[in-house]
Nucleic acid binder design. Structure first.
Lengths: 404, 404
DNA sequence: TCTAATTTCTTGACTGTCGAGAAAAAAGCA
DNA sequence: TGCTTTTTTCTCGACAGTCAAGAAATTAGA
């Protein structure tokens, strides 16, 4: 059923609009806000006064002699309104970042990761978060949101890691990892979903839809779709373990014939060294090892070339299925495996070419996107602040009643 | 960017809410409207008065002696507010239906279809629509919407048939088919999308997501997803021509290895009679022919059993890919091929079982949904009236200004 | 005929947006 | 310095919408 609306919701939506414009464009004056939001001057006054009263935004002094006329007064987020912690979990490292409400990075450190049990893993994260807080001058209550990311399968609404390449199917609940004593919102997202989010934010004008594929030890996929309303819908389907070939090569996940079992780094290794397809190499394949195979392939070695071509075909076939089921869209390739794209591309195109979706709508735009870590971080921030702004605005009403 | 809101939009949304509950529950009184919409009594009065003034709804007399107290006054759609024409295009027939604003069927007839050129096809439709109007007492201007459905690939927003099993890739624009002289909105949707829509409407409580698979000469898929806002998002991906096996059996579409080339009726025929996989049988396989094969299979004939098993595996593998890319959801099987589900089910489950998504989240709910034509018609009406109500409400404002 | 029960309608308070014009503040100029 | 021009911000009244409470309407039953 549809939802009913009310004048209060109107104010909430318009406040959210003002905050989002402020996020996107940085500091803005009253007039600029009015122009970009299309809200009338009076409304902008009412909303900014409200947000100022609640210590969410503030007026910023400026000495810019920008010509005649009354000088502009810029609005910006109050940095101390709240803080975000970003935790990027990769296969061997965990990176912790503390960010203020205006989006500026305050502190960052990286820790190695050797624990294998879920308990030890959770304890290490708890301790690191404690350390991040104690190093800073802020209080634990001021952290409004902790945003985790990992490779693997993530449950949509609950912050539950269903399956990850490193920990398997242990089912880690990150609210429990965080433990007591935090009243921060907890977010957990697939890493490549964040890449897709960041790529979507960067595009101007926004693409109606795009996919990000991350190549590495495992294969990640993120999709960002633009909805008519203006929101973007992001998802991270289980692409790496989608069926490529029935009863095919054994995958790390235990199933057979997954895309990853043909296009992951360990699959390339396996194919290049002609190891039987039901043998799984070590958990982590050193990048240098894959580099070596790539070197041979570039020099014309047949098996090495075949390994990459096979990986490309698996990706191409998988992408054709993606386009069939999600509609035609451009695809951005990222992740450490990006550097082998010269070896993969032929197979990818071959795997795409023979399918109906490509015959009808043409080969999709295939592009390489560098600097995955930055994209991940950008995605974290974009998502985190849209949640925080929403939360803050929803809480605004009772505060106001108390203030009057 | 987000959109701004206003008090006018609030009224629009709440008016839409009132109309939608009136659709769902039939005739309702003031109090019932207020209860189901959670809108206050005063608001309901304002909205119903407004809609009545614009001849969209009307009060309905009733003699129900429903106990003491002031008798209830029921509201219902004004039947003459507008009309809808539903055109269901199947491989050999076209069915035309005329429906009034309250959703009651006024007239219906079916015509055969033998034209092969797009021009002849369009001309036949134009003539039939003309006939439908002239048989009724209504005027052509009173038709607010013409809703077409067909198997095949449909462009999302424009009413453009991109590819259909009968007409191939001619790219038929249904606004041009309709021609001049109609100011009705034109809708074109994939048939199985409408089935998914209807199944979603029937479910109570609503499922968060469901898929409908239509088995027949070709394979159709519709997905209905519930969005947090309360709207449902429906789509019809190109499932039948998704890649099943690279360089596999030749498909009617010209590509190789499509699901349809293994699970469509002609594929079953081909497998049962051991015809080479790059031979395509006649365009339409008589259902009796498939029935015969099914009979043999049920009696233990090896090749006939294999044909259905192979079709089941193709479907099962395809469904596993669907679940990987769209999340876990129940699947409803419909269409004429439904009657062979006893022969298919083992293959379907086999094709699903070995994949990671099923190992993690379990076998999806697989259910057979009978009476596809009714589902298609229900889906037509559900979609048509949600568009019409939206249009009417959006036009309400200027009318009101003129009326005052 | 009166009262109780039930439904519908109306009214006043409140919240919100909009547009116009007042107020503020700086630069240009005599 | 004092006045004008220009630009920006702020304020105010008109208007639209929702809500809660109570008035008005209408019927059954005593």
């Amino acid at each position: 059923m549809l939802a009913k609306s009310s004048t209060e919701l109107v104010r909430q939506q318009n406040s959210a609009l003002v905050l989002s414009v402020l996020r996107r464009h940085g500091r803005l004056s009253h007039t600029e806000l009015s122009e970009t939001t299309k809200l009338s001057s009076g409304t902008v006054s009412a909303i900014t006064a409200d947000l100022e009263r609640h210590a969410i935004i503030e007026k910023i002094e400026q000495q810019a002699a920008a010509g005649r006329g009354r000088p502009r007064v810029l609005f910006g987020q109050r940095r101390d309104c709240g803080f975000v912690i970003v935790v990027v979990i990769s296969s061997d490292l965990i990176q912790y970042s503390l960010v203020d409400y205006a989006g500026t990075l305050l502190d960052r450190f990286t820790e190695g990761r050797q624990e294998n049990s879920a308990q030890a893993f959770a304890a290490a994260i708890r301790a690191a978060l404690e350390r991040l807080i104690s190093r800073s001058s802020i209080d634990r209550e001021q952290v409004l949101l902790v945003s985790f990311s990992s490779k693997g399968l993530v449950s949509a609404e609950k912050p539950l890691l269903v399956w990850s390449p490193m920990l398997g199917g242990e089912g880690i609940d990150f609210r429990i990892v965080l433990g007591q004593g935090w009243n921060a919102r907890t977010l957990l997202n697939n890493e490549t979903l964040l890449v897709a989010k960041a790529l979507q934010q960067r595009q101007n004008p926004a693409l109606p839809a795009l996919a990000a594929v991350s190549l590495g030890h495992s294969i990640g996929l993120g999709i960002a779709k633009m909805r008519p309303g203006g929101e973007t819908e992001i998802s991270a389907p289980n692409f790496g373990h989608m069926l490529h070939i029935p009863s095919g090569a054994l995958c790390r996940c235990g199933a057979r014939g997954c895309i990853e079992a043909y296009a992951g780094f360990y699959a390339v290794l396996r194919a290049a060294f002609e190891v039987p397809l039901d043998t799984i190499p070590a958990k982590i394949v050193p990048l240098a090892e894959v580099d070596k195979i790539a070197g041979k392939a570039r020099q014309g070695n047949r098996m090495a070339g075949f390994a990459f071509r096979q990986a490309g075909i698996a990706l191409g076939n998988g992408l054709s299925r993606l386009l069939s089921l999600h509609g035609h869209m451009p695809v951005f390739i990222t992740g450490p495996g990006m550097r082998y794209y010269d070896l993969l591309s032929q197979g990818v195109e071959e795997g795409l070419a023979q399918t109906q979706v490509v015959k009808l709508s043409g080969m999709p735009r295939l592009e390489v996107a560098a600097d995955e870590p930055s994209l991940v971080f950008e995605g974290h921030l974009g998502l985190a602040f849209s949640f925080i702004d929403q939360d803050i605005i929803a809480q605004r009403a009772p505060l106001q009643a108390a203030g009057e």
